[in-house]
C-alpha cells in the first residue's frame, strides 16, 4: 500500500514538474483588458519570450482591485511571480500584505513627479478627466469649480469610490483641490450627478448611450475614439486646478523573488519593447523609454497644467474616513 502511494506520488511529481523542466516559466497576474486580444498582453508575451527564451504565462482577473484580492486570497502560496496592474492607491495595502518583495535597480522610469519605491515599478500612467460629448455640451466646465457650481442641467455620471478605481480617483481629486471643504463641494456637485455607478464600464456605457453629456474617465479616452473610431465627438475637459494622476505599477511577489526571470521582466517592462505597445493597446501614457513616437492623436489630448497625487500612505490612512465623508455628503 505504502509503496503504491509513493510510486503514485512520484509519478505525480514527475508529471507536474515535467513542463517546468523543459523551459523556465514566468507567471504574471494582471487584469483582463491587459491580456485581451487587443491589449498589450500578446505583444508583451511575444517580445519577452523571444528575449528570455522562457514561457510567459498570463493569468488575468477583472481589474486592479480584483488583482490585489486574488493575491490576498491565494496568500503565500500564490503562483504569481509578477503582479502587474495595481495602481498607487492600492500599493500601500499591497505592501501591507507582506506578499511582495523589493525589486532591484530599474532605470528609465518616467512618470510625472518622479518615482521612488523599493517594491513597485510603474509601467504606465494616465490622468482622470471629465470627458464630455461635444454634440450635447457646447461649453464644457473649465475647472473643477465650474463643474461643482455649474448648471444642474448638465449632468455627469460618476463611479462609486467604494467599488471603483476611477470613483476613488474623483474622490481624491476633489479632496486634493478642496481639502477640508470637500464635503461642501460634494453637496453642491450632487445635483449634477445623474447617477453613481459601481464601475467605469457602467458609467461609460450610460455616457455613450447619451444619458448624460459628461462622465468621469481619463484624458486618454478621446484618443481611443479618435484612433479606433475616427471621431472627435468625445473630448476631455481641461481643468484649471489640474488633473489627478493614476500610475499603474507592477511588483515581484515573494514567490517571484525566487524566480530570476521576474527581475528581468521588470527591466524589460520599462524598456521600449514593452512601452511602445502601451499607448494604443492600454490607452495610457508610457512610463518608460519608447522607440516609436506617440500617435498624433495623443498630442491632441488635454495636457494637465498641474499634476495632483496623494502618496499611497496618505490614501491608505485616510481612504475610509474620506469615503465616509463622501457618503454623508452624497446621501443627504
Amino acid at each position: 500500500m505504502r509503496t503504491l502511494f509513493y510510486s503514485l506520488a512520484t509519478a505525480m511529481v514527475v508529471v507536474l514538474s515535467g513542463p517546468a523542466l523543459a523551459k523556465d516559466k514566468l507567471t504574471i497576474y494582471t487584469y483582463e483588458s491587459f491580456t485581451a486580444d487587443w491589449g498589450p498582453g500578446p505583444v508583451v508575451k511575444k517580445e519577452f519570450e523571444a528575449e528570455c527564451g522562457c514561457d510567459v504565462d498570463f493569468v488575468s482577473v477583472a481589474d486592479g482591485v480584483a488583482l490585489l484580492n486574488r493575491v490576498r486570497l491565494e496568500g503565500a502560496s500564490t503562483k504569481a511571480d509578477i503582479v502587474l496592474g495595481l495602481d498607487t492607491n492600492l500599493t500601500a495595502d499591497a505592501k501591507a500584505t507582506g506578499l511582495f518583495a523589493p525589486h532591484g535597480a530599474v532605470s528609465d522610469v518616467n512618470v510625472p513627479g518622479g518615482w521612488s519605491d523599493d517594491t513597485f515599478v510603474p509601467f504606465d500612467y494616465g490622468y482622470f478627466a471629465v470627458v464630455y460629448d461635444t454634440e450635447k455640451l457646447k461649453t464644457p466646465p473649465k475647472s473643477l469649480k465650474d463643474l461643482v457650481e455649474g448648471s444642474a442641467d448638465d449632468k455627469i455620471v460618476i463611479q462609486d469610490p467604494r467599488t471603483s478605481t476611477p470613483g476613488l480617483g474623483l474622490l481624491l481629486w476633489v479632496k486634493s483641490v478642496y481639502g477640508d471643504k470637500a464635503p461642501e463641494a460634494w453637496a453642491k456637485l450632487k445635483s449634477k450627478v445623474l447617477t453613481v455607478t459601481p464601475g467605469w464600464s457602467e458609467a461609460y456605457g450610460l455616457f455613450t448611450k447619451g444619458e448624460a453629456p459628461m462622465v468621469l474617465s481619463y484624458t486618454t479616452s478621446p484618443a481611443y475614439h479618435m484612433v479606433a473610431e475616427n471621431t472627435e465627438r468625445y473630448q476631455a475637459a481641461s481643468f484649471e486646478e489640474g488633473e489627478y494622476l493614476q500610475i499603474e505599477v507592477a511588483g515581484i511577489t515573494t514567490t517571484g523573488a525566487k524566480n530570476p526571470l521576474a527581475e528581468k521582466f521588470l527591466a524589460f517592462m520599462t524598456g521600449p519593447k514593452f512601452q511602445d505597445a502601451i499607448p494604443e493597446t492600454n490607452w495610457m501614457f508610457p512610463a518608460g523609454k519608447t522607440d516609436k513616437p506617440l500617435n498624433p492623436a495623443f498630442d491632441k489630448l488635454v495636457k494637465p497644467t498641474k499634476t495632483l497625487l496623494f502618496s499611497p500612505e496618505e490614501v491608505a490612512a485616510n481612504r475610509k474616513a474620506w469615503v465616509d465623508e463622501w457618503l454623508a455628503a452624497m446621501s443627504k
Partner: peptide, 18 residues
C-alpha cells in the same frame, strides 16, 4: 446591487449587498 447603484441615482440608494 448593480441595478440599485446604476439606476438609484446616488449612494442614498444603497443596499447591504454593496
Amino acid at each position: 446591487f448593480t441595478i440599485v447603484l446604476t439606476l438609484g441615482g446616488g449612494p442614498a440608494a444603497t443596499t447591504l449587498e454593496v
